[in-house]
Design a binder for these strands. Sequence first.
DNA 1: GAGATTTGGTAATACGTTTTACCAATTATT
DNA 2: AATAATTGGTAAAACGTATTACCAAATCTC
Lengths: 337, 337
Amino acid sequence: MTTLSDIAKVAGVSSAVVSRIVNDDKTLRVSEETRQRVLKAVEELDYAPNIAARTLRSAKSGLIAMVVHDVTNPVYAEIMRGAQTAAGDNNRALLLFDASATEQSASRLVDIIGGSGIDGMIIQSAGGIPERVLARAARQKVPTVLLQADLDAEAHLICLPDEGASEIATNHLIELGHRQIGCLSTARDMTFSRRRLDGWKKAMAAAGIDHGAGQIVYCSSDMESGRTGCAQLLDANPELTAVVCFNVMAAVGAMKEIWSRNLDIPGDISVVAIHDVSFAEFLKAPLTTVAMPLFELGKRAVEIAIDGTRPKGTSTIDNAEPELIMRASTAGPKTAR
Amino acid sequence: MTTLSDIAKVAGVSSAVVSRIVNDDKTLRVSEETRQRVLKAVEELDYAPNIAARTLRSAKSGLIAMVVHDVTNPVYAEIMRGAQTAAGDNNRALLLFDASATEQSASRLVDIIGGSGIDGMIIQSAGGIPERVLARAARQKVPTVLLQADLDAEAHLICLPDEGASEIATNHLIELGHRQIGCLSTARDMTFSRRRLDGWKKAMAAAGIDHGAGQIVYCSSDMESGRTGCAQLLDANPELTAVVCFNVMAAVGAMKEIWSRNLDIPGDISVVAIHDVSFAEFLKAPLTTVAMPLFELGKRAVEIAIDGTRPKGTSTIDNAEPELIMRASTAGPKTAR
DNA sequence: GAGATTTGGTAATACGTTTTACCAATTATT
DNA sequence: AATAATTGGTAAAACGTATTACCAAATCTC
């Protein structure tokens, strides 16, 4: 490994000068020819600063930890891409943890936080994060940003435009002529579920449509959970002609349940989901979705994690709008035809 | 931050003892009561070793860099999950880089490699990796493992049981009665394409089926490329009753092309693909696939990256078999019905 | 030409670990 | 009782960087 003093020796200066040139220290006064000599040596000896030493000295590692609930989920993947991009732009690297492989990786994460190995932490994990991780981060004063989570006084919070997205989805069905619209929500205890539900209710109310409590069913954001949730919804409301699903993976499961009852999509039941995924268009019924600014969410998250000046609190992604992507899983209801 | 000497002070010993107790140094002889005193102080003061200092001293960071071609691709996601799990088991953390966000993240990666910030590197990126990353890793003697790539003398190599998987897929079609079977390969210059092609040819030959050169078309592993590749295949071979796709995402695109020609799957054309994904069962035609041991691939990759004793060379995942997952995109050909 | 300022740097220290070499006091051996 | 071996540790150096305080020589000011 080439070190600062190797360069210093070659260039005939002290290592302090080399360090200050490499780090572009504005307060350093040095002759142009010395600077060139150093830069040349840096180039020739292929110098790269030792990250551990730099971290030790400056207490800044350039690493940001990101905890994802399930790496495999394409919805989260898009968030990761956004975070990845922003990290690169800001000269940071992303440390990845999968919350579903909980125990070992959580322990490791706690170690890393405690060992001042990271500059910031981003958590996308609906509830899957052990308390001790958060507690440790708070104690260690690691800037933490929670994605779509509940308020934690110690952390930053970023939300998606959930209410708007849900309203768009619901209005789309209403405009097609539906009146019997079910709501397959995400987990009950998540605040984003609440916001999406508000959007759904708002749209329903604006159209003057009443609804029973049984028209709302909560489930998790995976296919299997969506399937059982949808079964519950259909059992309780046989008259339904449309469903808005608050999560696209749950929607995929819901569609399976609908088909298993020999119902047609969208012939008998229309389905619209929040979050777009690349394969939505290739499903048995190409799925109409409302795309969320997930890339932007990931990007914003690392920006906030990096920027120490921002006061803690909640912010919402507002520079990108949810967008309705119309495909073939929605159509007017039979009675309206 | 709590440091070794904080602990030492509280426990009334030297920091050397604390370090050696924390690291479970077998050569240390210490009285049981001292050990307990130290352990108690560690607990109470909430000590965690400073990673930077440890790295600086021992030149082992506990970090493994993983470069993924496209985080969003579910096929790669499964590899990541395997790697993530193995990393946790071995008390390492995974540093994630997305090759598609190439330039910034590549520069950052080179910096990190050069700065001795990582213990190993895993590259899953069909061609997307800048030369300088590999070169730097080699110069820095960072153990590098290439997934499904071409032989590089400096690196370890891990392959999937490609030939077997492809043979299984092709045999499945042959057993259904197909004789006119197209091959939608992955990229021409990849050795795994070659191996899969060998499997296809082997199955065809074993069944005594001749084929023309035009029955093989190469494309990339994404939906759009699969679509155009399939178009080419169908144009050149109108008599085809089945296609084996070497990549599942390409298969999804291929299906789109087939449908756009008003052909039915599997009525007119059967489709089978290599790699299983969670949504395969929910596609318009639930896709028959051959699942590959991707989790195992990721897992093995970090194990090899960690284990410095293993000689360089190629190894194949052989403790897990490709598995045919039959769904509804394959059936006997029309003429056979 | 004496004092003040600027130019172009340098020396030294701290960051927190790990590890090697060493040592005083106690216990065992003959 | 003298020597040897064991017990239970300690002291100090090194890893490579960033940064503060300092300084000699050159140049400027009047």
